[in-house]
Design a protein around this nucleic acid. Structure first.
Length: 510
RNA sequence: GCCCCCAUAGCUCAACUGGAUAGAGCACCGGUCUUCGGAACCGGGUGUUAGAGGUUCAAAUCCUCUUGGGGGCGCCA
């Protein structure tokens, strides 16, 4: 709807007023008695305003055009609203976008099990992927596996120590999952243990992600990056760009102007840093896609500037790498903040949380806040099967509509949309909201912010419940009944699509 | 010490990206059931948008400083 109005107003401005600057279309506040507002005419004089008003009325879609400086408020004709609504039912061919997007998320080290923070990254990445796909992009979901290096060596040492009943090395790994691996390694050699352990842990990680319906198209191995000589290659390329210099026996990348200081690529012991292999990884990603999205925990923010700089040295536009940083999640039970200590055994794993509150609640709550805000996840609230819980509120709207169709002895899928012209003023707000679905998806894509969708669906559900309480759907009047069922069919369709994009179930009965 | 993110109603969060009188849910009080699902709906009030300046016709939003919370700054990953 916003897109539509913006196009229409933009056209009038360009054709009749030779104006092509920036303007907005926003919802009109209640007191105006209008639907939408635009600030497009804020610099017009009295004559221009009159002309603008006439041009707007000439389109035939506005019932009222009301000027309150600096806004022009617009009230839509019901006819236009009903027509816009009916487009929901049209099978539109998806507009194919030419850019391929590679979205990398979770990428937790295979040295242990996932925790709640990883889940936030997982849900943001997965939901965003779904929305991007729905919007016509070709999307690759990728998990970068750090299956080599110091942490993995430490993992191997920890496993051997546990097996030999010796103390785990400083900063090493322990826990039930590590003990289980130690029991299974028998007389495997060092390299075999590494591979085995990584495979086992990655398998556990995949199982957890599967529980909340997060699956990847590819798992990219850091080790393979080395084996395929991609790391050596990238060093040569960077050298050719004259961006590498030697100091104190190490090789450095000249990123000082973007980052705080220059960064080491190859240490004085000739081994590569994580930074170097990461550049190689991003180089590889850019060969496979035009737009990269990385979803990282906020503790990686210091890393963004240097990676972007490295990318631009390689000749790619750093703007085509979008890094979404998400802040930490605190777990609460009611008012009590859970202290997460591995030592006290109070540490809640991702799987514990999923098992306790369920997939739908985990996904909904973790996606319903913008990524860069810290977030308190209340396990008590997430578990509640009452109206306090927004997940159930949404699903209830869906189930309620299903039950109306059941009562009407028809199926929503088979129901033929008709008599929309019989929908009256009482459906205005609901129709409007329904017509804004595409705008919301567009906002999600433009901002890489999937959380708008949860806000929107909750609002849509509220308006539906509101309408439902006031207006009987199934009446003695067959014509009116079919009009209202048509309305419900549209709402149902949006709820389903929306819930599906969020990866939340849309139950027909609850 | 330097850098990044955050601060909105008692609580959890929105605010269409610089717009009008800052909105929802929860909590609290009261109401709505012979009718399609009461897991719902309706009504009631709450704000110095952490604070102080600045830019703008217009600031929760942009700039500067202060306070508080989180995080990052090694030839770590």
């Amino acid at each position: 709807m916003y897109g539509k109005l913006k196009n229409l107003i933009g056209k009038i401005l360009a054709e009749k007023f030779a104006f092509d600057g920036f303007f907005q279309v926003s919802p009109a506040p209640k007191f105006t008695g209008c639907d939408y507002a635009t600030n497009a005419g804020r610099k017009f004089d009295e004559n221009q305003l009159q002309a603008f008003r006439e041009e707007l009325l000439k389109t035939g879609i506005f019932e009222k055009v009301k000027f309150i400086p600096p806004f022009t408020n617009l009230k839509l004709k019901m006819d236009f609203l009903r027509n816009s609504f009916s487009e929901i039912f049209e099978e539109k061919p998806k507009t194919k976008r030419k850019e391929k997007i590679l979205i990398e998320f979770v990428s937790a080290n295979p040295t242990g099990l996932l925790h709640i923070g990883h889940l936030r990254g997982a849900v943001i990445g997965d939901t965003l992927s779904r929305i991007l796909k729905e919007s016509g992009f070709d999307v690759i979901k990728e998990y970068y596996v750090n299956d080599r290096g110091r942490q993995i060596d430490l993992l191997t040492q920890s496993i051997l120590a546990i097996k030999n009943k010796k103390p785990v090395p400083e900063g090493g790994y322990q826990g039930k999952e590590i003990e289980e691996i130690a029991e299974k390694i028998k007389d495997k050699s060092g390299e075999e243990i590494k591979e085995f352990a990584v495979a086992c842990l990655l398998d556990e990680i995949k199982k957890d992600l599967k529980k909340i319906d997060v699956e990847f198209d590819s798992f990219f191995s850091e080790k393979k990056l080395y084996e395929d000589k991609k790391v050596d290659e990238i060093l040569e390329i960077l050298k050719k760009k004259n961006a590498v210099f030697e100091k104190e026996g190490a090789l450095w990348l000249d990123v000082k102007e973007a980052d705080e200081k220059d960064r080491v690529l190859v240490k004085s012991d000739r081994s590569a840093t994580y930074f170097l292999s990461d550049i190689a990884y991003h180089y590889d990603k850019f060969k496979r896609a035009q737009i990269l999205i990385n979803i990282w925990g906020a503790d990686h923010h210091g890393y963004v500037a240097r990676v972007k700089k490295a990318i631009s040295i390689l000749g790619f536009n750093p703007e085509n790498l979008k890094v979404i940083l998400y802040q930490i999640v605190r777990l609460k039970r009611g008012n009590e903040v859970l202290k997460m200590s591995k030592r006290d055994g109070t540490y809640l794993l991702a799987r514990d949380v999923i098992d306790e509150v369920g997939r739908d609640a985990v996904r909904f709550f973790l996606i319903s806040r913008k990524a860069d805000a810290q977030f308190d996840f209340d396990l008590e609230l997430a578990k509640k099967k009452t109206n306090q819980n927004p997940v159930f509120y949404l699903q209830y709207a869906h189930a309620r509509i299903c039950s109306v169709f059941e009562k009407a002895k028809t199926k929503s899928e088979d129901f033929e949309v008709k008599n929309l012209n019989l929908l009256g003023e009482e459906t205005r707000e609901l129709l409007k909201k329904a017509c804004e679905f595409e705008d919301v998806l567009k906002n999600c894509v433009e901002d890489f912010s999937p959380h708008y969708l949860t806000v929107y669906l909750s609002e849509l559900a509220t308006l539906f419940h509101n309408f439902y309480e006031k207006t009987r759907v199934i009446t003695d009047d067959i014509e009116v009944t079919s009009a209202r069922l048509s309305l419900l069919k549209g709402i149902l369709q949006i709820l389903r699509r929306g819930l599906n994009l969020l990866g939340i179930s849309a139950p027909e009965k609850m």
